[in-house]
Design a protein around this nucleic acid. Sequence first.
DNA 1: CCAATGCTGAAACATACTAC
DNA 2: GTAGTATGTTTCAGCATTGG
Length: 371
Amino acid sequence: MVGDQVAIPGLGSAPGGSTSEASARAFGEENRARLLKRYFSSAEAVNPENAWRHVYRLLLWIDRTTGLAHCYESDKCQPGRPWYARSLAFHVWSAEALGVAPGELDKHIDYLFRHATADLAHVAARNRARLLDTVSGQRRPYEGMGLPEPGEDPELESIIAEVLDPFLAQRPSPAALRELAERIYAHVGLENKRKNLVGEGFEDTVSALLSRIPAIARTHTIHVRPLLHQVPGFRRPRANSKPRQVDLALVQGATGRRTLVSCKWSVRSDREEQFVSDFRDYAELEEAGEDFDYVLITNEFDPARLAAACEVRRQNSPLFSAVVHVNPAGPHAAYRAPVPARGKGIRRALGHIESGRLVGLDGWLRDVAGR
DNA sequence: CCAATGCTGAAACATACTAC
DNA sequence: GTAGTATGTTTCAGCATTGG
């Protein structure tokens, strides 16, 4: 699976010194920053038009159950279901937009996760090595009692042995089977960890893009996950209520204009509720008596959820000053397949794309840069 | 049958705390 | 002060259920 330069956890990591050491927390802030820096050091210079491609190169992934670029819940994307057609369309569209063959897309996306999981493997190997002595001490009293080895899964091992039997001159050693089983578990388990990276990784990515567009970086201060009261014009909450954090905040130097950004790779209905209550809390803590912008940046593909985000209101104006999709052409391509679908939600979502209520990352970045 | 909406759970990080 | 551990919080996709 993992393509480039992944040293298999063979201990004693010394990858020619070419990479700085991965931190102890593979998905942590420090390591993400390190990976982003590395990515951008050899990537095309960022501008509003290509920003979304960087987002997909860094974060988009292949759904292993379909082999296609992930755009929706996998149970609905299974072959034969309506979203399989849409996933196919999205996969082809994104490959074309990134200038690669559909069969090669997997090698050009998912940079952060692929590299972070490689680092994770190193960290795990390091920890295992470090604890080796402790482990044998723990097992010593039970030596010779035939206790199971960690990671042993006889059932899986017999499946492997059975399937491969016709091709093998001899049955693999128990140790080999056990290692294979362990590697399979590690591989399968990886996918469960993805959401731990995608959340803050998306915030980091958007921030990295903003800071690499000179017209924005020159004129704005960018805060990543600041406490609200670290943003000018917001006050500290009462001592007994906990401090509020914002995904991202932009402050324009010249005017003091403030933009609070909520970055959500995808959205669920309960989160939609949260948008409103978050905003209420923000407004409550505003002390400058000035308006502020509240922006949602997302890669959600569900038309109803997208439309809902565009339509949420607070009193008599839209909750979000702008609703930004990584690239609305993606959902647009998906909704058309195999024939222009037209459910109620899709209609609504398309309407918002056409009206400009739902904008692309490119348009929003141009807007910020042009302020 | 599909869309829409609601709910749940795995996993990780960050930090406060504890014991040495 | 340091290392290890418990707690709290956050993330988002998958799954379940309701609605049309």
